[in-house]
Amino acid sequence: MSNFSNSSQNPPLILASTSVYRRELLERLRIPFDVVAPKVDETPLTGESTLDLAFRLAQAKAAAVAKEHPHAWVIGSDQVADLCGAALGKPGNFERALAQLQLMRGQTVTFHTALCLMRGESQTTLSVPTEVRFRKLADDILESYLLAEEPYDCAGSAKSEGLGISLLESIQSNDPTALIGLPLIALSGLLRDAGFVIPSKT
């Protein structure tokens, strides 16, 4: 559930996500919303590109929740990290996170953050790319970072909103919160088009 009280200004809104990061980002807009966990198989399809995977999962998450809540607007989002065409998932533990950071050392990784806003037959889906250049850092520095922040639930193994920023050489994006998991500039536009008042009147 949202921390914000219900308002008659805005239609019902649901975030289809289990991500605490997306929930915290959406709270920045200070509009009431509920959170419902979508039941979606996130296994990539054979030959599926990283961008197509992000699009498909964002739409699937929104659709899974919208089916049960037809009168609400539903937000689905997914992020896929792309290194030379290969998807980098959530590492889950120290060893896999270190292997990811070693692969990305000195490389540019594209984070595709797809966003879907859906209600009934109405839906809009878009993707915001973020280009991230990783510094060439020694293994002991990477290990120290992982032990300090434990970003094992984060695709790419580095939290730009935390200590992980120290591993990065540059970030290029038109929507700065996209890298954290939810592009709020794009989402604000979609919500206004759907009839939401942002900021809402008190």
Rank of each mutant, 00 (worst) to 15 (best):
M1I: 03
Q9D: 11
N10G: 07
P12Q: 08
L15D: 06
Y21G: 00
E24Q: 15
L26N: 00
L29H: 05
I31A: 00
P32N: 14
P32Q: 10
V35H: 10
V35P: 06
K39L: 09
P44E: 05
L45I: 13
T50R: 11
D52L: 09
L53P: 00
A54K: 08
A60S: 05
K61W: 02
V65R: 13
K67Q: 11
P70F: 12
W73I: 12
W73F: 14
V74I: 15
I75T: 00
S77A: 14
S77Y: 02
S77L: 03
V80N: 01
V80S: 04
L83E: 03
A86Y: 10
K90P: 03
G92C: 10
N93T: 04
L103M: 14
M104V: 02
G106N: 15
T110A: 09
T110S: 08
C116L: 07
G120K: 09
T125S: 15
E131R: 12
R133F: 00
F134H: 00
K136M: 05
L142Q: 11
E143R: 15
S144K: 08
L146I: 11
A155M: 12
A155D: 10
S157V: 09
L163N: 09
I165L: 15
I165Q: 10
S166Q: 08
L168A: 07
Q172I: 13
Q172P: 01
P176H: 04
P176K: 01
I185Q: 15
R192Y: 07
P199K: 09
S200F: 04
T202F: 12
